[in-house]
Design a protein around this nucleic acid. Structure first.
Length: 823
RNA sequence: GGGCCCGUAGUUUAGUGGCUAUAACGUCUCGUUUACACCGAGAAGGUCACCAGUUCGAGUCUGGUCGGGCCCACCA
């Protein structure tokens, strides 16, 4: 038998082992395997760079679960995809290939992206492979591939036919400088100086309402004034005029604008009164939930569109119809400022309002405005035709679906529930971008929607023509689908890779959705929505929500703070097992600080595992088996086996409940304390100088069983070192890989209360002796003259082991309260 | 502002109403011929954030206060 090398170099060995896994196809999905399926809806990372530490953290956690279920004998379906259908990839490809997507045919750019992904796919997934992710990387998809585009477009076509998709006017975020629609992620907050303008407008009953705005240029788009119906408002005399405003506002304005309150009234008394707004139509006062009497004058004017608040207001007030005041050149189209952009328009209208006496006060303020990150221009909202999935009627259904999922951890469900309860409008799935999955729609001469048939998909309406039509008869839709409209179909995209195989029926609904908590309201919710609309059921049974990696002080990692951490460095310095061991220390869903020292601990555990295994293997050299009953084992061997047996039971229970961190903690403690510190020391006497072969083989039996089992318990966390050691164990009938071996099973007959109690006392005695030797500055091997132990249990069955491990020259046992006397 | 989570040793953490509240790292003392100095043994280190309540009993349950983190919304 080959002796184990003195040292284990994780960096060198992990590379070799990983290559072997790949060559031997250890994690290959076998669709013909009849075993129970455990399918994972793996998050497809954005194809835009390297794996970051947050990825390493959460993918490792999913991998613990996957490996456990694989060892439980399940047929694990663990695909890997990349999300290249989005802005990040678009930007990356534009930069790397030095092209502009807008100047190309869309299909051409899609092909370029696919080519780019193909070229870099191996590099991209390398980090995940190094980390030891046990996905089958050949069960692979890309969200911009034909496969995924066809599924995404099919979803659109089917939902349209079901009456779930509608086209309607809706505001989009627009950059007047770049003259383009932009995505929310392309905006940033900038604090700017501005002016809050107080404006008066006459009510039909003669008084004036006072409202404040930072966007007076939008007066022509004003469609309503709102108050808080529960708020307290007043009518106040101000010179000849009577002003209406919130009571709170009177106090603030009193110094500058002395007025006397005539009477108080409730906000609801104002509802319905008509007000003549300058440069706009006459509008009625309404109640709105967002209005607070403490801010401004307690009266708000809403325009199409001053900001997101206005957009939301229109959603709450369907009677008020937005008007288009700005066109796609960023200029106003109506009113006194027609032809002007916002900045000039504001100046002009303030002048005019001042001239006709409507402007009562200008207050300098600082506030945050959204600007386009590329050019710094204030963004605008303009109304355009957009595509929506209508689902507001399904809120109850979605809540029900959410409650039917098994949430790990449970409290994450609350986030989804709050989101669903707060939904205000339908899901806008169209984007005015060039790159993406095209909306599969043409319009005929009458403007009717023409759809492709399923077998034509995927299509690009800009280039393709549906069956039975000529190009000149149709106008193509230019918009593309929001990336969430496609990524919400990952269960279908992944499982339909096996569409033509009988296993397909068994893959969906999937077993597990693993993901982080930041996108519960997006990816998780949207995937549930699509599954409900298409299949009338949830796409998975369980969800496992992982947390974030934080910096060593518990703050969020970010590029701007300069506290980013690179997993590649950790892999290079400590290896994947150490990185994974760190990730296993965090409870599922818990945010976890990144600490260098944790990797040192991981690496030390690896070394310890190596050394302890080396010891066991060396001492199994002459082992030929222990052919007797459990009860014939030495008492300390039964103690060890019984404790190990309990551990096995606990670990499976915790893993079944996605509590991998409990498993990690329990196994680590058992290995270090019970197995190494105590058991290995206890059996040394019997191994080195056995009285007979029986007491030695008794120890060997337990050493071999417990080592093998412990390696398996460690295997989901540290797949490399456990694979290496497993391969060197001198057993027959081993599995090809530890990761294909079966999870240890609990054995009732190995449970031994008596042995556990004796063992417990023996360990306490050993501790006392060690304390004594430490206190007397003696070596642990130093002999003690006489050891007198008083215990309640009869420990004499373990006397030989105890004498050997403590190196006692004399020993006496008495019955009574626990006491150790060392001479 | 709304929601969720978290406050336990110098640091990071375990803890399912019940023995003397975990462990790792760090610190201090000691110890190397038979797995391991990439080590072992031992020690010190705690107002379980604070206040009140429920209970025979609270780190654990309830309410409040303070502090931290994340997500969402953000000002007319």
């Amino acid at each position: 038998m080959a002796e184990l090398p003195a040292r284990y170099d994780p960096i060198e060995e992990e590379a070799k082992i990983q290559q072997w896994w790949e060559d031997a196809k250890i994690y290959e999905f076998d669709p013909a395997d009849e075993a129970e399926i455990y399918s994972i809806d793996t998050p497809p990372p954005t194809f835009s760079g390297n794996m970051h530490i947050g990825h390493a953290f959460s993918y490792a956690q999913t991998d613990f679960i996957a490996r456990y279920h694989r060892m439980q004998g399940k047929n694990v379906f663990y695909p890997f995809g990349v999300d290249d259908n989005g802005l990040a990839t678009e930007r990356l490809v534009e930069k790397e290939k030095k092209v502009s997507s807008k100047k190309m045919e869309r299909e051409e750019f899609v092909q370029l992206c696919l080519q780019f992904v193909e070229e870099h796919r191996n590099d991209f997934v390398t980090d995940w492979k190094k980390l030891g992710i046990s996905a089958d990387f050949n069960v692979f998809y890309s969200t911009i591939s034909d496969h995924a585009r066809a599924i995404s477009q099919r979803s659109f076509v089917h939902l349209y036919k079901d009456g779930r998709i509608k086209r309607k006017k809706s505001p989009i975020i627009f950059c007047p400088t770049c003259k383009t629609a932009i995505a929310q992620v392309e905006m940033e907050d900038v604090e700017k100086k501005s002016t809050l303008n107080y404006i008066k407008a006459q009510v039909e009953t003669g008084e004036y309402v006072i409202y404040a705005t930072t966007r007076p240029e939008l007066h022509p788009g004003c469609m309503g004034l709102s108050i808080d119906e529960a708020g307290v408002y007043v009518v106040a005399n101000r010179g000849e005029e009577q002003w209406i405003l919130a009571k709170d506002a009177v106090e603030k304005l009193q110094d500058e604008f002395p007025m006397t309150i005539v009477r108080e009234l409730k906000g609801k008394d104002l509802v319905g009164r008509k007000v003549e707004i300058p440069y706009a139509q006459t509008v009625a006062i309404t109640h709105d939930t967002s209005v607070k009497t403490e801010y401004g004058t307690g009266i708000v004017y809403y325009c199409s569109y001053g900001g997101l608040d206005c957009v939301e207001w229109f959603a709450r007030h369907p009677d008020a119809q937005p008007v288009d005041v700005m066109d796609e050149t960023g200029c106003y189209t109506t009113g006194p400022c027609a032809g002007l952009r916002s900045a000039e328009a504001r100046k002009k209208i303030i002048e005019q309002l001042e001239n006709d006496g409507s402007l009562v006060k200008k207050e300098k303020i600082k506030h945050f405005v959204n600007v386009h990150e590329r050019c710094g221009t204030d963004i605008e909202y303009i109304a355009t035709d957009q595509w929506f999935i209508t689902y507001m009627d399904l809120q109850e259904q979605f809540l029900q679906n959410g409650s039917e999922l098994n949430w790990h951890p449970a409290h994450m469900q609350v986030r989804l529930d709050n989101w669903i309860k707060g939904l205000q409008w339908d899901w806008c799935i169209s984007r005015q971008r060039h790159f993406g999955v095209p909306i599969p729609v043409w319009y005929d001469k009458k403007g009717e929607v023409i759809l492709p048939s399923d077998d034509e998909l995927p299509v690009d309406p800009l280039r393709d023509v549906p069956k039975g039509y000529k190009k000149e008869e149709l106008t193509p839709e230019h918009d593309v689908l929001d990336t969430w409209a496609t990524s919400s179909l990952t269960p279908q995209i992944a499982t339909e890779l096996y569409k033509d195989h009988p296993v397909f029926k068994r893959l969906f609904p999937m077993s597990l959705r693993p993901q982080a908590h930041d996108i519960i309201t997006f990816w998780l919710f949207n995937t549930m929505v699509k599954s409900q609309l298409h299949h009338k059921k949830n796409p998975w049974k369980d969800v496992a929500i992982s947390g974030f990696t934080l910096d060593p002080h518990g703050r969020k990692l970010s590029k701007s703070k300069g506290n980013a951490v690179h997993p590649q460095e950790v892999l290079k310095n400590y290896g994947a097992d150490a990185l994974r061991f760190w990730a296993a220390g965090a409870k599922l869903g818990e945010d976890f600080p990144f600490q260098e020292k944790d990797f040192v601990t991981g690496k030390k555990t690896i070394t310890k595992l190596w050394n302890a295994s080396k010891f066991v293997v060396m001492n199994l050299e002459d082992y030929t088996g222990f052919n007797a009953e459990f009860t014939e084992l030495e008492v300390m061997d039964r103690w060890m086996l019984s404790k190990y047996n309990t551990l096995v039971k606990e670990c499976a229970a915790a893993f079944d409940n996605y509590e991998y961190s409990k498993v990690k903690f329990a196994v680590e403690q058992f290995f270090w304390k019970d197995f190494c510190d105590n058991y290995l020391e206890i059996v040394k006497g019997r191994l080195y100088e056995p009285k007979d072969n029986v007491e030695k083989s008794s120890a060997q039996f337990v050493l071999s069983h417990v080592l093998e089992g412990m390696l398996k318990l460690f295997a989901p966390f540290m797949p490399y070192i456990t694979e290496k050691i497993y391969g060197m164990l001198p057993f027959e009938n081993k599995a090809k890989s530890i990761h294909l071996s079966s999870w240890p099973s609990y054995r009732e007959e190995w449970h031994d209360n008596d042995a556990e109690m004796v063992g417990h006392d023996i360990v306490l005695v050993i501790e006392e002796v060690r304390k004594f030797k430490s206190a007397n500055q003696l070596s642990m091997r130093a002999p003690v003259k006489k050891l007198t132990v008083t215990t309640k249990h009869d420990i004499r069955l373990a006397e030989n082991d105890l004498v050997a491990v403590t190196n006692a020259e004399g020993f006496d046992h008495k019955h009574g309260e626990f006491l150790v006397v060392i001479e």
